[in-house]
Write a protein that binds this DNA or RNA. Structure first.
Lengths: 115, 115
DNA sequence: CTTTTATTTCGGATATTCCCGAAATATCGA
DNA sequence: TCGATATTTCGGGAATATCCGAAATAAAAG
């Protein structure tokens, strides 16, 4: 197994929430520069303290990292964690069912070209 | 977006549980023939009624299907749903970060070869 | 040093998830 | 029909998640 099952559950749980999924998408789009917590809260539409909790959950799962910049705390997506999760899902599925992830090959290649 | 956000959350939530993730993996490995609920319960190590709830959750998310065979109810993994979820994650990530899913291309291809 | 801005932590109220035992339903075989 | 097997539904209790307002912490500005 590419990832211990509880670890995979942690990653899935972290993203299994509308606001947290939105936050992660936002941070992936933002790239390595990341975004300050306040801006994320505003974009996603949640109170700063609530967002802080969500960011902590994402952080605990390893999906985001943070650094301080003056008064702001900048958050960035951790690609490695997401890659690990996708790897787990793909390898775990492909083991028994190429139909599931064979189409992903083209998709992933297209992403490399387009991105 | 390849999938409405709430739909993606449903799929992620369904798999964000140790037993349910184990069940889904088991069903993917079992292939189109599927497995009866009782056997799944035994393999995963949960009581039949508890498993029934988990199967209902997976079913509601569209990740598994069922058919009756005599006294047994046979469950099978729904590849399309899993493919949709992976597609969402990959496309959503690759939009901003090829580093995440570029490695998946090779992985998915390898699955097709090996599977 | 005080104020302002940015974020996190704390306490608690509400909602949801999770699991179990008991009972109900469906199907088969005697 | 009666009993056995397979699964689901029901009801409730315990654990967990979610969200909010208020207070605390961190850093810059005046």
């Amino acid at each position: 197994m590419t990832l211990p099952l509880p670890r995979a559950v942690d990653l899935l749980s972290a993203l299994a929430h509308g606001h947290r999924l939105a936050v992660f998408r936002l941070l992936v789009k933002a790239g390595p520069e990341g975004l300050p917590a306040g801006k994320i809260a505003h974009e996603v539409g949640v109170l700063p303290n609530t967002l802080s909790t969500h960011l902590a959950i994402l952080g605990h799962a390893g999906l985001v990292q943070s650094r301080r910049d003056g008064r702001s705390v900048i958050y960035t997506a951790n690609y490695a964690a997401m890659r690990a999760m996708l790897g787990f899902l793909v390898e775990d599925c492909c083991g028994g069912a190429p139909e599931i992830c064979a189409p992903l090959a083209g998709l992933a290649l297209a992403c490399g070209d387009a991105g």
